[in-house]
């Protein structure tokens, strides 16, 4: 299959290794990856902060850029969720019926990486090797907007050498919430504290998730506290093999 990669502005800028890993996994499975160069940002932060009108041109751009793609895959549950869950209402507000139709149609072809592997491609064993103790934080938007279910856990359990430890109270929010982390910094930190305790209780070496934004929040505090636990996007674990460790 030809897969169009939506890297997301955040991963493009700060976490390019995640994008490389995603390409590695899909190519290993025999698929062709395209990277439409005109893509920029989905406008999630604008919509979620209330700047809806500023996000409209970004939405139009997204729909145009990915018009012909068979499948659009993103290494971010919250960006994929923006396309599928937030765009339809925003498109309706513009009163442009053809845009609204295009948004719905693009949304139906847009996937978060782990759900794409498990649901669309029907793969759980991607041929990865990762001999580490790993816990997984199911991000809110992967769970409750995209409903990826246990897709990420199934992928991790199929990785050779990987010692998977479920995260206690995993489905509770880590407190990131985009601009919430700065607008409500105190509450965000209170939520983060409980998440860190849960992560540390697993005695994992690596905490993975399907969103680098929540991971940057969790990992930023783990690093500050010198907790000795590193973070990695799930794509990087799935891309790792005996010959190359990518997480």
């Amino acid at each position: 299959m030809r897969v169009a990669l939506f890297i997301t502005c955040f991963n493009d800028t700060l976490f390019p290794d995640t994008g490389k890993a995603l390409v590695t996994v899909l190519e290993r499975l025999g698929h062709v990856v395209d990277f439409p160069a005109a893509q920029t940002c989905c406008g999630q932060a604008h919509i979620n902060t209330g700047y809806r009108r500023d996000a409209v041109p970004l939405m139009r751009r997204f729909v145009d850029v990915f018009a012909g793609a068979e499948a659009v895959v993103a290494p971010s549950a919250s960006c994929a969720g923006t396309i599928r869950d937030l765009y339809p209402a925003l498109a309706n507000e513009t009163g442009d019926a053809s845009l609204a139709a295009a948004v719905r149609e693009t949304g139906a072809r847009t996937w978060e990486f782990t759900e794409f592997l498990v649901r669309r491609l029907g793969v759980t064993d991607v041929g990865a090797y990762f001999p580490h103790r790993v816990t997984y934080h199911p991000t809110c938007h992967s769970l409750r907007v995209l409903r990826v279910g246990d897709a990420p856990e199934r992928l991790l359990r199929a990785v050779r050498g990987l010692d998977y430890v479920p995260l206690p109270q995993g489905d509770e929010c880590c407190g990131f919430g985009g601009t919430f982390a700065v607008k409500n910094a105190d509450t965000s930190v209170a939520m983060l504290g409980d998440k860190l305790r849960a992560v540390q209780a697993t005695k994992a070496e690596v905490c993975v998730a399907a969103d680098n934004s929540c991971l940057m929040h969790i990992g930023g505090a783990l690093h500050r506290q010198r907790a000795g636990i590193r973070i990695a996007h799930i794509a990087q674990v799935l891309a790792s093999t005996e010959s190359e460790r990518l997480a």
Partner: peptide, 14 residues
């Protein structure tokens, strides 16, 4: 205040 940011990469994905 409570979190570090990872070192920015030398090269973007693009």
């Amino acid at each position: 205040a409570v979190r570090d940011l990872p070192p920015p990469p030398a090269q973007s994905f693009r």
